[in-house]
Amino acid sequence: MKNKIYFLLSLAALWLFACYKSEERPTIIHGRVTEYGTGAPIERARIYVLCQEGTVLGPSNFTLIDSILTDADGRFYREYAEGELCGSVSFLPYKEGYFKGNEFYYTTDNKFFDVVLDPLSWFKVITAPDILGDRIYFTGTFTGAAGWDTWKGDGTKTWLFETRGNRDTWIDWDYYGGGMNSHRDTIYLPKHDTTTYTIHY
């Protein structure tokens, strides 16, 4: 009788263990990386999988635990067994020729991520003085909210800005004392190329 009880208890334990195992769910990190402005898939973008660790009172530290490459269609997919990753996992996408992302994608509920990367572009501004004015000031969406000024006595100057491509940018410029925004142009910046704009003043 005692052996029969032990046998039944063993069966019950095995059944409970099987139920527990069946409820385990892997963590899935998956999605697609495309290019801003064209929607084209980005092949061989690298997805850095990070573990965030820290305390409520202290700063968080990110530890690299894996990386995934996107395929020809820009897709990435990887499964991790339960317990293989830490409690707070995120990823950061990167591809040479594109802006380095500073947005962490937190992996919760095995969500599918649509990741859009901004291609790099360069905007060259040339200031060429003539007889119209002594000093100008210019700014625009390509400067990151900064403003720049130059004097006629500086001669011709060249400014090169790294910015985001496949989109319009605008530039404002004016003489000192003339009131800002009296000269505005909108310029389209193609990806992975340099666009030149010359200001004669």
Rank of each mutant, 00 (worst) to 15 (best):
D185F: 05
D134V: 10
R164C: 01
H200M: 02
K100C: 09
E23D: 04
E35S: 01
H183Q: 13
T107E: 15
M1L: 03
H192Y: 10
P26M: 02
S182E: 02
R135I: 02
A128H: 14
E35L: 01
A72N: 12
P59I: 08
I42H: 07
D172Q: 06
F123Y: 06
I5P: 00
C19S: 12
F142Y: 15
T34N: 03
V56N: 12
A128W: 02
W170K: 01
D66L: 08
L9N: 10
Y77P: 10
R135W: 03
E43G: 08
K111N: 15
I28V: 14
L50F: 09
S88A: 02
K4A: 11
Y106W: 14
T55D: 15
V56G: 15
K4H: 11
K100T: 13
L8Y: 05
V56C: 10
S60Y: 07
L50T: 02
G165M: 04
D66W: 09
L92G: 00
K111A: 04
F99T: 07
E162R: 04
N181W: 03
M180I: 02
G179W: 00
L14Q: 03
W15N: 04
F142L: 13
T158Y: 00
A18Q: 07
F138P: 09
Y188E: 10
Y106P: 00
F62Q: 11
G37Q: 04
L8H: 04
G37H: 01
A145G: 09
P41M: 12
N166R: 09
C51V: 00
L8C: 07
E103S: 12
F91D: 13
T70G: 09
P59M: 10
G37A: 03
D154A: 12
G54A: 07
